[in-house]
Computed example of a mutant assay.
Amino acid sequence: MDKGFYHPVRGYWQTVGGSLSLADCPEGTIEVPLKPSINHVLQNGEWVYVSPPQPTAEELRAQMPDKTPREFRDILTDMGVFPHMVATKINEIPFDIERQRALNAWEVSTYISRTDPYVDMIGAMFDKSPAEIDAAWVA
Rank of each mutant, 00 (worst) to 15 (best):
G11A: 04
Y12I: 02
Y12F: 10
S19Y: 14
L20D: 09
G28E: 08
T29W: 03
P33A: 15
L34N: 08
S37W: 02
I38L: 14
I38T: 13
N39T: 10
V41N: 10
L42Q: 06
Q43V: 15
Q43Y: 12
N44R: 15
N44V: 09
E46F: 05
Y49D: 08
V50K: 14
P52K: 15
P52Q: 13
Q54W: 11
T56W: 04
A57P: 05
E58F: 05
R61F: 08
A62E: 07
Q63W: 06
Q63H: 09
K67F: 13
K67Q: 13
T68F: 05
P69H: 05
R70F: 07
D74G: 11
I75L: 04
I75W: 00
L76H: 00
T77F: 05
T77Y: 06
D78M: 02
F82I: 03
P83E: 08
H84T: 07
V86H: 00
A87V: 08
K89D: 06
K89W: 05
N91E: 14
N91D: 13
E92H: 11
I93Y: 01
I93E: 00
P94H: 12
P94W: 07
I97G: 13
R99Y: 03
R101S: 11
A102G: 08
L103R: 07
A105P: 02
E107Y: 15
V108D: 09
T110M: 13
T110C: 14
T110I: 15
R114H: 06
P117F: 09
V119I: 12
M121G: 03
G123Q: 02
F126T: 00
S129T: 15
P130Y: 04
A131P: 05
E132I: 02
I133P: 00
D134G: 05
